[in-house]
Structures are given as C-alpha cells and as structure tokens.
Design a protein around this nucleic acid. Structure first.
Lengths: 198, 198
DNA sequence: CTAATTTTGAACCGATCAATCCAAAACCAC
DNA sequence: GTGGTTTTGGATTGATCGGTTCAAAATTAG
C-alpha cells in the first residue's frame, strides 16, 4: 500500500548504539548518527522520534544484548556457583577486548551512561538503575547458593558481596577505558574472587 | 600600570572545576562557565585561553586537590600499611557524600574524564593516565610494605593488588553516581579488603 | 494505468555552540 | 590630573546543534 523502507531498523539501531557507546550521548551529533547508520535525517526522525528517544532505544538494546546473556551465565544450572562467577568475569574481560583490535576500550554503555547522564537524565538513570538491580539480584542468588554449598567461604551478606562484585565490574570497565591491558583486567578479576574466600 | 583583576583566578578555576565535575565536559557550555564563575566571557577567555584549556587546568587542579592528600595518606608513616589503606577508603567514601546533601553523587572528575573523554582527547587521557600511574605506585608501595610486615596475607603481586584496589575505587565512584548509598559503599570497601587477607 | 500512501533527500529553522571583537571603564605610574 | 595599559561587558561571529518542512521518488492496491 505504500513505499517500503530500504533499511533495516534493527541494523540502524545497532549502528546508533555503537556510536553512542563509543562517543557518549552529548558528543554524538545527529549528523554522526546519520553517518553511522547510513540513513538520512528524515528516516531517523521518522523511525526514532528524537535523538533522546533513539538513545533510549539504543541503551535498551545494549542492555538486552549484554545483561541477558550475563544473567543466563549466572543462572546456568550446569555449573557450580563459583564457576558461574568466574565465567561472568571471563565474559566481561573478553567483551572488553573483543571490538578493539588496538587502542582504548570503549567501555560499557551502561557505565558510560551512569557517569555521563544519570545525574541529569531521569529516564536514562531509571533504565540503568533497573539494569543494575537485575544484575545485583542475579549475583546475590548465585552468591547465596555458593555460600550454602560451601564453595564460597565468605560469611558476608550475599547482597554486600553482590554489590562488591558489581563495583569491581564497573571498575574494570573504567580501567579498560583508561588503557588497562588484558592481563591487568584478569588480575583484577582474580583478586576480586579472593574476597569470596575468607 | 594597568587595571587589576577584580576576581581571584583560583576561585574561578575552582568554580569551573566544579561545573565540569558535575556535568561533564561536553554538557558544560561556556555560558555555564560564566554563570558558575561569575565572570564574563572576556575575562574567562582572557585568563584561560579556551574551554579546553580551562578544562585541562580544572582537571589538573582536581588531581592536585584529590590525589596528593590521598597519596599522603598512603605514605603516612604514623599508620601501619593496612590502616593506611582503610583510611584511604574511608576518605573516598566520605568525599563521595561530602558535597552531596541529597541526590546522586557527582562522582570523581578523573573517572568521569576517563569515561567521557579519554577515548578522543589525548591530552586529557595523558593527564588521567599519569594520575592513575602515581596512585598505582603509591598503592603498590603500601601493599608491599603490608606483605613484608605480615599484615597483608595475600601473596599476590603487589602491582596486581594495587590495580585491584584502584579498580574497586573506580567502581565505587560509578556505584555512587548510580545512586548507591553510604552503607553500600562501605560494604564494598570492607569486602575489597577481604581480598588482601587470604 | 491511477490513486493513495509512505519514504527519502535536501533545504531550511531558530537556538545555541565556542570564540572574537570592540569600545568603555578602571586602574597604575607619573 | 594625564597617558598608557589592562579588564570588562556586550554585541557579534560563523559554525553547528537538534529538529522540521516539503516536494519528489517509490511503492502497492485497485
């Protein structure tokens, strides 16, 4: 009944997500988004109503792409609790160096969003807040299971341990963006696991 | 021989630092800087040649104000090594809630700069990189001393332990900006210290 | 084919960006 | 006081910002 689109919305969203991820919200202009997606302004504003809406959708997509598999890892019934946590850290280190043949990491879009936007963008803050909450619940679950099975010797509150691991993950992302190499990140992860031992 | 300034350069720099700290580099306009400092555009451009130069000076000032006392804490000969590290964490938690009667923390300008700018501003990247290096050296020193004295049981490489603590500090800053309260940060710090025990 | 509907590209919008210019005001040395 | 020098505020610059408009192009239904 009418002219169809010549582009794939999900691919465009993906490209926009990468642009925001690499350069941040403010430093990504609508021109940059046109260049990254290969779309014209009209197509972008027709499909995603504004730069801010596009960012929200890109952030939601990023969270889906990243958090859901990580939660699945933490809830993998095939692995004992401690191994699931090790697998999570491995995945995070791998991701930090996957899309980066050389040069700095671009970090993690949720961490970047917390730092750049959470203070003055309530919608973005709510999205990353929900994400953090979900991650903390999953971490708490696997940590409590590890304590019950005896794999995790620490008697600290599982919620506190979860917040600790989550903070370490955020710190690793910042360190990677600051130029840390793979060995440094692996050492940080390994040392963090020591805190579950005592 | 000529008209003197009616403002204090250091006070202006301080106000600019706070503006960049709270809102980031991109989101702080030159108008914002005028409002924050109380200066006119001419005075700002006369004194600090550009927005970017002003940012560099603000960042340098922040590093001086924050890192130097922290290094001093870590090298305090009055305290045993483990106590110095605990004092550092205390100071960081305090700082995170000091200038914030309510609402979110504005985090740490060096962390914010790593996340927002390090990827595309080599000068800013070099400044925060130097700062991180200095912090790591000091941490390594106190950690090695703790290992020698037996206070720190972990036999991991002191450099790795230093990178771990530094990552935790960064993660705490991100967590605070994400809305974590004081108790959460204190739990993270306490748990991080567990990693030095085993 | 035509009519209806949507996408698309380009021109365009006012607002704001960082930065500059300039003349008036303010000060010091003399 | 006067001359020389700097600061200061306000107007202004061209560029770019996010966003809109509009007509031509493209497509399908009939």
């Amino acid at each position: 009944m009418a002219r169809p689109r010549t582009f794939d919305e999900d691919r465009a969203l993906d490209a926009a997500m990468r642009a925001f991820w690499a350069n941040g919200y403010e430093a990504t202009s609508t021109q940059d988004l046109c260049a990254a997606t290969g779309l014209g302004r009209s197509s972008i504003y027709n499909t995603f109503s504004s730069k801010h809406d596009l960012f929200k959708r890109a952030l939601a997509r990023y969270i889906d792409l990243m958090t859901i598999p990580q939660i699945a890892l933490l809830e993998d019934p095939e692995l004992p609790p401690a191994a699931r946590i090790r697998a999570l850290f491995e995945r995070i280190v791998d991701a930090e160096f996957a899309l980066r043949p050389e040069g700095r990491s671009i970090g993690c879009l949720t961490v970047n969003t917390i730092v750049e936007l959470a203070g003055r963008d309530p919608e973005a803050a709510a999205m990353v807040g929900r994400d953090q909450e979900i991650r903390l619940v999953a971490l708490r679950g696997v940590l409590a299971a590890g304590q019950r099975s005896g794999e995790i010797a620490s008697r600290r509150d599982p919620g506190d341990l979860a917040r600790f691991l989550n903070a370490v993950i955020g710190g690793m992302r910042v360190a990677a963006q600051g130029g840390a190499d793979r060995a440094a990140l692996e050492a940080v992860a390994a040392t963090a696991l020591d805190a579950l031992a005592p």
